[in-house]
Design a binder for these strands. Sequence first.
DNA 1: AGCACGCCGACT
DNA 2: GTCGGCGTGCTC
Length: 664
Amino acid sequence: MGDAEAPATPDAPEAPTSIARVTIDSPLPQLDRLFDYAVPAALAKGLVPGVRVRVPFGGRTVSGYVVELVTPGDSEFGGRLAELERVVSLAPVLPPDLWRLARQLADRAAGSAGDVLRVAIPPRQARVENRWLAAERGVPETVDAPALTGYPDGTLERLARGERLAVSAIPRTVRLPGGAEVGHWAITLAELAAATIAAGRSAVLLVPDFRDQAQLEAAVAVLLPPASIALLDARRPDAERYAAYLRCLEPAPVVAIGNRSAVYAPVTEPGLIAIWDDGDPLYAEPLAPYVHARDAALVRQENEGSSLVLLGNTRSVEAQRLVEIGWLDSVEPPRSGRPKVVPTARQSDDEPAARAARIPSTAWRTARDALAKGPVLLQVASPGYAPWLACASCGQAAHCARCHGPLGIPRAGAAPSCRVCGALATDWHCDNCGGTRMRSGAVGSARTAEELGRAFPGVRIIIADGDHTVLQVPATPALVIATRGAEPIAVGGYRAVVLLDGERMLSRESLRVGEDCLRWWSNAAALATPGAPVLLAGASGPVADALGSWRQAAWAKAELDDRRELRFPPAVRVASVTGTPVGVAAAMTAIEDLSGVDVLGPVPTGDEQVRAIVRLDYAAGAAAAGELRAAVIAAATRRRKGPAAARGRSTPTLRVRFDDPEIL
DNA sequence: AGCACGCCGACT
DNA sequence: GTCGGCGTGCTC
C-alpha cells in the first residue's frame, strides 16, 4: 500500500482528525454547547476525547475539554476556526460516556453540562496526573466470586444480566475478620462488588456520608485487593481523590466507593451501580444543576447497561415509584431476621429515676436490664443541652435579638446563645409578651446524658453527635446517646435500642417527616443485636406501625399513594423558577401549554424577585426542561437592558431548579 | 462574562 | 467634521 497516497487506514495511529469539538468551562448558559477548533499538527499527537485543553475564546484563553475529534468536513461551523492553544495533559478525564451522561442530566435539569462536570471531575492535581501518566500498569489480580449472603439464590445472576433491583437490607451488624463491626448492608454491597470484579467489570458504590463510607471500605477490603478499590469520598485530600478518579479510567476493573459525586466515577464498563440508603438527603446535590445521585445513577445505568441496586433498611418513596412502574424489582431477605420492635406509650412513670430522665418506665427498665449485657443505644433528636428555648411565661420560642435565629444552650451551665450567629442572648426579653425568663423547650443529647448519668450511676456514658464523632463502641456496658444519623456501631450489636424524641421528630413540618423518621428509626434498629429489644418511646401512628411491623416498603407505597392524591413529588416532578417578575412570566408562558404541567404562584420572595413552582408529569419533563432552559438563556442574553445603574449591581437572572427538595 | 461593533451628542 | 456614550450580539 502506498503510504503517501492512503495515510488514513482505519486504525492508523495518527489519523488526521484535525477538528476538536470542545466544551468550554463557563457558567454562562448561552455557552453551554460545543465549539470547534483546528488541531495544530504539534498538538495532534496522542490527542483523544476527554483531555483538558486551553482554547482562545472571545479574545481570551479559557479551559475546556475535547469532547470529540472529527474530520474537517464534519465541522458545522462556517467561519474561520481558531486553533487549540494548549493541551493541558493527555489524561482523558472526560471520557465519552461521562460527557454523554453530563449532557443528558443537564438537559433533564435545564442546566449546563459544564456544571455537572464540575461536580463529576475533581480538581486537577498536576503532580498526581503526571505520575499517573508515567506509571506502568501491571496485570490485575484475579479475584474469586463470592456468594451473596442472606439473599435468594439467583440474585447475583440477575444482576449479572443487568437487572435493576430495590433490595431490602439485612438489619443487623456483622463483625469483619479484621475486628471492625459493620452493618450487614456493607457486606452485601462488598459481595456484589466482588462478584462484579470477578466477572471482569467495575462497580460504583455510593454511600451518603463518611461513617457509612468507613463501613463499606472495611467490608470491601476483606474481599478485594487495594489495587481494585478507588476511594472517592469528599473527605479525602484532593490529591488522593484525583488519584482515585484517574484509577477509574484504567482498563482494569475497579470498585469506586464514594459519596454522591462518585456516581460519576469514570469506570469503563460498569457492571454494577449500587446506592446504600438512597432516601438519605445527602444524595441531593446542592450545586447546580442539583442532580440527585439516584437520578444520575438511573440515567447512567440505562446508558451503560450495568445492573442497579438500591439497598436500604427503608424504601424511599422514589424507589417505591420505580418499583410500581416496573423499573425496579423488589428483592427481600428472609423476614426472620427483623428487629424486635416494641412500641411504648409515653406515660406517667412509677420509677423516679426514669421520670427524672424523661424516659418511659418500660424503656428505662429495658435499658437497665440490657446494660448488664452490653451497650445500649439511646437515639435523640438534637445535639446540645437545650436545643431550643422558650419564653417561660407565654411559651413562644425565644429568638436572637440580632438575627432572629433560635436560642439554645449548647452545654450544661452555658449561657443561652443563638444557634445561627452564636451571639450571647444578653438582656433577652420575649417579643410576644415581654417576659424576661426562658425555659427549655426541648432536651438535647448533652442534657439527656446528664440526666441518664444520674439515673444510672456508675455507667459509662458516650455521647455521639455532630460535634462528637464516634464510629464504633466496644461490646462492654455503656449508654450511648446519639443524635439521629450519628449512631456509632456497637461491636456485637446493641443489647437494646431506645428511640427517644420520636414524637418531636414526627412533629417537624416537612413533606418528608414520615420517611425521614422511618429511616432514622429503622437504621438505628438495625444496629441492635438480633433479638434485642428496640423501643420506640412515645410515638404512634402509621410510621410507628411501619417500624413495628418492619414493613417499610408498604409504608412507602401508602405514602406514594398520598402524594399522588396531592400531586406532590415524587408522584410528579417539580421545578422552582426564580427571577424577575418579567423573566418568570416569560418562562411560565413558554411551558403553560404543555400537557401535564401546572404552575403554583408566582409569589414574591422579598428581594424584588418572584418564584413559581411548576409541577410536571414525568412525560412532560423533557419538554418543560427544554423550554425552561431556553427561557434561562433568553434571560441571560437579554438581561443587559435598562439603565446603567441597574446593571451595576449583581444581576438577578432567571434560575430554574428541578426536583428541589426544599419546596412543598 | 468580556469584547467588538454600531448609531446619536458635545468638543478640538 | 470627530470622540465616545452604552445598547446589541457573538464568542469556534
